[in-house]
């Protein structure tokens, strides 16, 4: 009996208690240009709300660390659906950074101009609408992180903002 009680206490102490959902905020989209910005949801029993955090740094890793430091709770990236990147970002830099943060293969990657305007627009539409869902609703083909990793020369959709989000065309990332 003593052993069973001991096992129960140890279990409670060493299990994934700290990983459960009440200690995390859910990131739905990540925007990368000179800043690293994420749109996240703060779940609430009655009214969940959407907010953004932005960070700067010498490199992407730095920006990511600063982003985590600024967040009130642990950032949870498993429900990240879209990464919007500046059209001038280099392919290798992006892939190295995404490897560090260990994102899922099915995340959509979209190139963009006027990222701050796009963030403002999608902050109002979040959490369920992101640039990639807008593109998909217009039947425009989107590219996943997995496809990007496999083919360096793949063409990514590019969007801009002029009173509304506009699909411009497809563009290759810089090497």
């Amino acid at each position: 009996m003593k052993k069973i009680i001991l096992i129960m206490i140890i279990t409670i102490l060493i299990t994934g208690c700290t990983n459960d959902i009440n200690n995390e905020i859910i990131v739905t989209s990540l925007y990368i240009d000179n800043n690293l910005t994420c749109i996240y949801i703060v779940p609430n029993e009655k009214d969940s709300y959407v907010d953004t955090i932005s960070s700067q740094g010498n490199n992407y890793k730095d920006m990511y660390d600063n982003l985590n430091n600024q967040a009130s709770q642990k950032l949870y990236f498993d429900h990240l659906t879209t990464i919007i990147i500046n059209e001038n970002i280099k392919y290798d830099d992006l892939i190295n950074f995404l490897n560090i943060i260990n994102i899922k293969d099915n995340v959509n990657i979209v190139l963009a101009k006027n990222i701050p305007d796009i963030i403002n627009k999608y902050k109002q539409l979040a959490p369920f609408t992101t640039p990639s869902t807008t593109l998909k609703s217009k039947k425009i083909k989107t590219i996943t992180y997995k496809e990007l990793k496999q083919n360096k020369n793949i063409y990514l959709p590019i969007i801009t903002y002029k009173q509304d989000v506009i699909f411009v065309g497809y563009k290759k990332m810089q090497s």
């Binding site: 409670i12 299990t15 994934g16 208690c17 700290t18 990983n19 459960d20 959902i21 009440n22 995390e24 859910i26 739905t28 949801i41 779940p43 609430n44 029993e45 009655k46 969940s48 949870y76 498993d78 429900h79 899922k104 959490p127 369920f128």
Partner: peptide, 30 residues
């Protein structure tokens, strides 16, 4: 699904679950 495998539940459900447990003083297992 609320501790290790949060990725398998849809975002809407995750937000709903997370909203309900947010103010709890204990962890979900307790």
């Amino acid at each position: 699904v609320t501790t290790y495998n949060k990725d398998i539940i849809p975002l809407q459900l995750l937000i709903s679950l997370s909203g309900q447990v947010r103010m709890l003083p204990f962890s979900i297992i307790v």
